[in-house]
Design a binder for these strands. Sequence first.
DNA 1: CGAAGCCTTGATGACCGTCAAAGACTGTGG
DNA 2: CCACAGTCTTTGACGGTCATCAAGGCTTCG
Lengths: 226, 226
Amino acid sequence: MLTPNPVLDFPQTQTSPTSALLAHARDDDDLQTSSVPINFARNSEIFAEGEGAGYVYKIVSGVVRVSKLLPDGRRQISAFHLPGDMFGFEVDDVHHVSAEAIGPVKVLAYKWQSLLSATSSRGFVHELLNRTMIGLRQTQDHLLLLGRKNALERLAAFLIEMARRTGSDRSLHLAMPRHDIADYLGLTLETVSRMFAELKEAGIIKLESARQVSVLDMSKLEAMAT
Amino acid sequence: MLTPNPVLDFPQTQTSPTSALLAHARDDDDLQTSSVPINFARNSEIFAEGEGAGYVYKIVSGVVRVSKLLPDGRRQISAFHLPGDMFGFEVDDVHHVSAEAIGPVKVLAYKWQSLLSATSSRGFVHELLNRTMIGLRQTQDHLLLLGRKNALERLAAFLIEMARRTGSDRSLHLAMPRHDIADYLGLTLETVSRMFAELKEAGIIKLESARQVSVLDMSKLEAMAT
DNA sequence: CGAAGCCTTGATGACCGTCAAAGACTGTGG
DNA sequence: CCACAGTCTTTGACGGTCATCAAGGCTTCG
């Protein structure tokens, strides 16, 4: 199963009947086995700001960007999500951010109402609470970056974060283009490019290609992130 | 009971025995009645970044700022909390932000472990999840402000937020000094002051005093917040 | 009345955004 | 295999927004 834009085939309203796809969610504690995968093509929309929120997603493969837009098009990416991450939680059944696949993405989808119903396990609510608190902490860290760090510190912090999350210390592959990095760091893509050049000239990183970064001196990189 | 710095008298480690003060938390569902108040003086620390996290707080009166610091002293305030708000949640028993009383503050404190124990009510975990998700959404909104809005838009958004949260449309009292507003908005206090002047000259607000703001034209103010 | 804290206003400059052009990479089709 | 188109990235020149440094005014409280 691979549709060009699966969102269209996919029940989005809260009142829709539980699809066969999601039928397992309610009686299974193990998130890994409670749904079948859905595929999204590169740059396709998983959900949009303002849309009804009925599902929670867990990434099997690929990278997802979660963002907010201003009316004039300015964009802030609030997080990148990697395999294993969950996203799409909402308090009031309306999405307040949008989510898009950066490359090809495979997710598992869970019906939100079922997960929180009386028959779902208590441990699962704790799991959701834990994940949400972790997300809140990461977002607070990002506030400090956006409010108080300069461009070089922001890029250094970003590279460290990505190296840590992908579990790769030396060689780091970036799934997203400069434009997305810029919108995550509150900069322009030109400034991001210049900061890459600066780290390169300082001998701290090596650019194998635009997306493939070798970290030559992690301790210096950490020192730059402040 | 009112001590100059109540934190010192107050068990902060996770392993400390449940104090008499907090004994009710475990068997009472109603947050309003499950603890007795604790007072904090103006500018006193409720908890600090890096400290052990054993308690969750609910504000009875006063305003609290939650912030993070860089080693060189740069500060980002991630939220102001008003009466009725809760703060102090942490996943891993260590605070990753610090919290301080802006003026005199009265809070109720709850032992975190007790709240999540098997004997505590299921509805309460849902309550915590809801509050955490709301906090996450507000923090995501703030990311957009810090990453993509200019100084004037930031101050306009701040005034609107405060007017909404205090339930006052016309006359607005700000509990915090310019410096705190600046650290919340990712600006300097001078820039904040200049933006107040700009809104004043545009006839959108009137400054009765530095802390007392009259909103003369809320729709124009909303237009400026983008 | 004096002192301390807070706020405003002005002058200057740095950092980063904007505009512009050209180089690099990827995949497709001839 | 190569050429071409589209997308992404780099680099340069210039300017604006906001930080920094500085001084003075206001308010509150002893």
